[in-house]
Write a protein that binds this DNA or RNA. Structure first.
Lengths: 339, 339
DNA sequence: AGCTTTATCCAAAACGTTTCGGATTTGATG
DNA sequence: CATCAAATCCGAAACGTTTTGGATAAAGCT
């Protein structure tokens, strides 16, 4: 490994000059700069990022903490799409990404903040956290550590967030069902620990009330965002609430489970049950029936997260909150109400 | 940020002693160790990994270079599953992951080796590279940089690889079709720059010849592993080779395209055309018809890659090559030949 | 007592860079 | 000719660790 010293020796100048030449300072003669650059090139010199970070206190690295990185996460590739967006924008802006998972045992002993401090990342992007995650508090209190949260509405000088308009999205979904004539519409929600669940519930409620349909808490089930949860919820609906003709689910994954439940009960969507999902995961367009759903652009969310974080890191004055739009995609899992 | 010096001062010992106490050396009195640990705890001390790396020359970080991290990559989540496996094993073994994409512009100017050198990762895992990728040569020649390749059969002291038994897998796929009575079987392959394509072609050929069916190179199409490529290939087959009753595709993604082409031509699978794919992506089980395919465990591949790389990094004597098994999954896209 | 061993500690160097605070030279200016 | 400014360079400190090569004191042995 050639170091800055080797170059200094070869060029007959001091390390200071080499450093300043290579970093484009103006107090070095153009000729010596070229000489130094030529030598650096010839020795295929690469600055040691570790050494540099030690003195500058910057690593040009952002930590990405995704709770969904595990064997099951592959089915809905939401986390992956987010990661792709983060990665693309980060690389464009010449930042690197240090990936942390929270699934392993390590999480228990080390907090995010510790991880980040230890590895000296400049900032972090967190996704998939539960609302009452103990580490979330850490983030909020530890105000000097810049980070952006995905789908968690918190803001301060050093924390921003990006999310989608979940209330509107859910309202559009339910509005679509109402437009088809459905009046008894159940909801399969995620869980209370997700901000998006609260918002989507709110959207569901507003759409109903806007149409003069009373909101009935009994019609709201929790599926925990898991396929199995969707299965169980639909099973219950099918047996206990035979008046229900349509379901709004807070995730496509749960719809997959719900469809299996319907099949098990000898019923079909959309003939005996209209369903609209959320997310527009890859499977949604291909499964049977293809899902009517609310599309949210996770790639864009990741992209914007990276942009926001780096804006913050580089002291640009910028809004701490980004809300992206979602969009109703009508496919074949919904049909006019027959009753 | 509390440093080792702060602790030394607080404990009334030298920094050497603090370092040795915290790192479990045996030449420090148990009482002083406890005292030091208590103080470290109280000051919530976290060792600065950057400073440590500078002297130890180790970062406990592995670079992960995936070519498939981009907006399109989300549909088949193969890269993501691999990443999950890598991540899980790496975290278990207390390594961190630095993510590099190759999609962006940066790639053109900086090679992988440069990236890795610059960021001082201890080793790297590369996936999605083409056989004649200019950087691959770099890897092979730069023999002092440890890395493991996914699906590229290269070996040396510092490079290992993990892959699946593609020849067997392809042979099983084609054997399944032959068992159903098919004799005119086309293949939609990926591209020549992928080792897996060569192997799968070999498996296709062997299965045919094993059944006494002559191998006809005209029946092999290249779809580039892209959905559109599958579409086009199937279109050609449908119009120019009406004798073909079955197709073996080197990826499920291309099958999705092929199915669209069939539909466009007013034909259906498996009635008018049996198709078996490869990969068993998430969509495969849900699309219509559900795909008969060869399952390969990408998560496991990632997991094993991480294990292999870290074994190499820690100087454990271990085989440089890992071959995982694949498995035929029979669903509904294949049916007995009617002719 | 003198010697060796053992246990415990530490000063200083090293890692590769950036940066602070000048130093030196050159040319222009009054 | 003395002074000043600009251009160009450099020595040394600093970043926070680990590690080398002892130093010191206490204990054990002959």
């Amino acid at each position: 490994m050639t170091t800055i010293k080797d170059i200094a020796k070869a060029a007959g100048v001091s390390v200071t000059t080499v450093s300043r030449a290579l970093n484009g300072y103006y107090d070095v003669n153009e000729k010596t700069r070229q000489k130094i650059q030529a030598i650096a090139e010839k020795l295929s010199y690469r600055p040691n990022a570790v050494a540099r970070s030690l003195v500058t206190k910057k690593t040009r690295t952002i930590g990405v903490i995704l709770s969904e990185i595990n064997r099951e996460g592959a089915k809905d590739s939401l986390a992956f799409e987010t990661l792709c967006g983060i990665n693309d924008r980060a690389t464009e802006l010449d930042y690197d990404i240090l990936l942390f998972s929270t699934s392993s045992k390590k999480q228990k002993s080390k907090s995010y903040a510790d991880l980040c401090k230890e590895r000296n990342v400049d900032g972090a992007i967190l996704s998939g956290l539960r609302l009452h995650d103990p580490y979330l508090e850490e983030v909020v209190h530890d105000t000097d550590f810049p980070c952006v949260l995905i789908d968690i509405p918190l803001e301060s000088r050093e924390v921003g967030h990006v999310t989608t308009d979940n209330v509107k999205g859910a309202a559009a979904a339910v509005g679509h069902l109402i437009g088809l004539g459905h009046r008894r519409i159940a909801m399969i929600n995620g869980h209370d620990e997700a901000a998006v669940s609260r918002d989507r519930l709110e959207g569901y409620r507003r759409a109903l009330e806007g149409a003069g349909i009373p909101f009935d808490p009994q019609l709201v089930y929790n599926g925990g965002f898991r396929e199995e949860g969707g299965f169980e919820a639909m099973y219950e609906i099918g047996y206990n609430r035979k008046d229900v003709t349509a379901v709004f689910s807070a995730s496509d994954l749960m719809v997959l489970g719900a469809l299996r439940a319907l099949e098990r009960m000898g019923r079909k969507a959309p003939e005996q049950m209209s369903i609209v999902g959320y997310d527009d995961i890859a499977i949604a367009a291909h499964c049977s029936p293809p899902l009517t759903t609310i599309r949210q652009d996770r790639y864009e969310m990741g992209y914007q997260s990276a942009q926001l974080l780096i804006d913050m890191l580089e002291q640009r004055e910028v809004g701490r909150k980004i809300v992206l739009h979602s969009e109703l995609v009508v496919r074949k899992s919904t049909a006019p109400c027959k009753e």
